[in-house]
């Protein structure tokens, strides 16, 4: 059911809005809609070229390090649940819990990026580079773009964490924690699609 009729949104945001939705939340969703189109266009291009080009050669599972990518996928899923638990903690007026869960989310994001930093040179060693063929081009473009988004999410969460350590967030004022969460879950959501697309199929 709609949450617009509930008074907390108007009271907890800085000022009333004509839509009833806080500007920050609406802005975040509009931004994510544009991100859907960005990743959607890359994925549809991948599908067309993968099906249509005889030059599209997919490396073997051994070369792709599927187990490593599988563990990385689990790391992102864990980070998603810690992020949503951080929001639940602050909603229950538990700032310490929020800080610990946020720290865990940031740690998971950094683990994901570290694994990617290990994976890229491994791929280069296997002969998969951004200029080695269509698969390499798509692999590094899509995972690189996703990696930049993960880095952005880590920075956003760091900002939330630093403000949290200063006691900025409370059940009355936790909108930005929610926005950071929405963004972070989107990053997880994109990886859920990229993982089978690039590593398994």
């Amino acid at each position: 059911m709609s949450s617009y009729s509930t008074p907390w949104i108007l009271e907890s945001s800085d000022e009333p809005t004509s839509t009833g939705v806080p500007h920050g939340k609406l802005g975040m969703w509009v931004f994510l809609a544009s991100e859907v189109m960005l990743f959607g266009s890359l994925i549809s291009s991948y599908i067309v070229l993968r099906l249509g080009s005889p030059l599209f050669i997919v490396p073997s599972h051994e070369m792709l390090s599927v187990p490593v990518a599988f563990v990385n996928t689990l790391v992102l899923i864990v980070s998603s649940v810690t992020m949503v638990l951080a929001l639940a903690s602050i909603q229950q007026d538990n700032p310490k819990g929020m800080i610990w869960y946020l720290a865990a989310t940031i740690a998971c994001g950094l683990i994901f990026l570290t694994v990617k930093c290990w994976e890229y040179p491994h791929k280069w060693h296997e002969g998969i580079t951004i200029s080695s063929g269509l698969y390499g081009s798509f692999y590094f473009t899509m995972t690189g773009l996703h990696g930049i988004h993960v880095l952005g999410g880590v920075l956003f969460n760091l900002y939330i964490l630093v403000r949290g350590l200063k006691g900025h967030w409370s059940p009355r004022r936790c909108e930005r924690v929610e926005y950071a969460g929405i963004y972070w879950h989107f990053v997880d959501l994109v990886w859920v699609v990229l993982f089978p697309l690039l590593y398994l199929l």
Binding site: S2, S3, L26, W29, A33, V36, S80, V81, M83
Partner: peptide, 21 residues
């Protein structure tokens, strides 16, 4: 996780736009 289940028409509208695209 993104609480779309609890959102209303404006957010659903934005999501629908992305899905149409």
């Amino acid at each position: 996780f993104m609480h779309l289940k609890f959102e209303g028409k404006w957010i659903y509208g934005v999501v629908a736009l992305a899905l149409v695209a």
